[in-house]
Design a protein around this nucleic acid. Structure first.
Length: 260
DNA sequence: ATGCCGATTAACAATCGA
């Protein structure tokens, strides 16, 4: 089962490019972030025509997450538990029924958090505390499950081309990294680092200042796997080449292959 | 990097993202 995560930076601007990539990469599941669309505005037909089931959790203008799946989805839930007053659409869950086993999928768009300090950073850390609670609950089920998406976290300096630039940024602040580590340390396997060592691997390049041309990127899109999902991990890679195409997202897809 | 670009909404500038 091939599962991808992709921050598409607007479905209206990216639906054609997204379909081209889906046709080539042929993921069974795509977890999407920043659809920047309400549910009614999501162009579900073009994905359904390709055999995908479509589940969205949209919001007007900003944020928004979705799951595309060629395999059946069950028990879909929307919104990260822990704060009923949170209006931002950043979390969606579903169970995908594989050939051999089912996998609980969590698609997430973690808050950016800048500027630091400030209310947006407070919201990021509070959101990560809720994420940790959900992660604990997932872990206690002792079943294949994963949390994947745009974490807006640069885990280590090796995950940035110019780490010094990000030192005071919400994506790399010690408090951010610690909160991320506390979640990983519950027992999750970070799929890319289970497969690839060392620096120079990025999933985001700013549109500005020729960041892509200079490979001035950061790795902020991650897969965290429960032990039962990690047992099934066969591969993980970043599809960076599509950043060369016209009108790309500022993120590129990251995908895993599971023996599920 | 103090948003230099890009998407979105709502107007034809402001807001947000990382």
């Amino acid at each position: 089962m091939k599962i991808a995560t992709f921050n598409i930076n607007g479905i209206k601007a990216r639906h054609v490019a997204l379909c081209e990539w889906l046709d080539e990469a042929q993921p069974d599941v795509a977890l999407l972030q920043e659809i920047k669309s309400v549910d009614e505005g999501f162009p579900r037909e073009m994905f359904e025509d390709r055999g995908y089931n479509v589940e969205t959790h949209g919001q007007k203008g900003f944020n928004g997450v979705a799951i595309l799946s060629k395999l059946p989805l069950e028990d879909v839930t929307r919104g990260l538990p822990g704060d009923d007053s949170d209006e931002q659409a950043r979390w969606i869950e579903a169970t995908v029924m594989g050939e051999h086993t089912s996998v609980r999928l969590c698609g997430l768009y973690l808050p950016n958090g800048n500027p630091v300090p400030g209310p947006k950073y407070d919201y990021k850390l509070a959101w990560m505390e809720r994420l940790k609670s959900r992660a604990k609950a997932l872990m206690s089920r002792e079943e294949p499950a994963l949390m994947a998406g745009d974490y807006n976290i640069i885990p280590l300096d090796e995950d940035a081309a110019r780490p010094e630039v990000w030192q005071e940024d919400a994506l790399a602040r010690p408090e951010s990294r610690r909160a991320y580590r506390e979640i990983v340390n519950l027992g999750f396997t970070e799929a890319f680092r289970a497969r690839v060592r060392g620096g120079g691997h990025y999933s985001f390049w700013d549109y500005q200042a020729g960041a892509w041309d200079r490979n001035d990127g950061i790795r902020i899109d991650h897969f965290l796997l429960t032990p039962q999902a990690a047992d099934l991990l066969r591969d993980c890679a970043i599809d960076k080449d599509i950043r060369n195409r016209p009108k790309p997202s500022d993120h590129v897809p990251v995908w895993i292959e599971l023996a599920a």
